[in-house]
């Protein structure tokens, strides 16, 4: 391991925080999707790093990472479809204007 695991973990934490900031702050729906992808990648990074650091040889970490990628793909697809539908319907995909659920 060329770099101690803690550093990799720190990196993924930073990435995760950036993604979270994006999800919370961006107005554009697709911007949020992008941020989510970032957060997922941060998680993958952790998976791989720990699997590498002290895995038990079962490849669970990497398998998990693979699955996360799969899920992310599904998520992005559906998300974008939604965005398209909303856009077609409401001419905007700014998150703060879509407030049908307002109480």
């Amino acid at each position: 391991m060329i770099v101690p695991v803690s550093h990799v973990a720190a990196l993924s934490a930073g990435l995760f925080a950036l993604g979270l900031f994006g999800a919370l702050a961006r107005r554009n729906g697709i911007g949020i999707l992008i941020s989510i992808e970032l957060m997922l990648n941060a998680a993958n990074l952790n998976f791989v790093a720990f699997s590498r650091a002290q895995g038990d040889g079962s490849g669970m970490g990497q398998a998990a990472a693979l699955f996360v990628i799969g899920v992310a793909a599904a998520g992005a697809a559906v998300g974008l479809a939604l965005m398209l539908a909303i856009y077609r319907h409401r001419r905007t995909i700014a998150a703060d204007e879509i407030d049908l659920l307002k109480g």
């Binding site: 697709i30 999707l33 992008i34 974008l80 965005m83 398209l84 856009y87």
Partner: peptide, 9 residues
């Protein structure tokens, strides 16, 4: 996908 999304909206 994302780029297409961007383009379409």
């Amino acid at each position: 996908l994302i780029i297409f999304g961007v383009m379409l909206t």
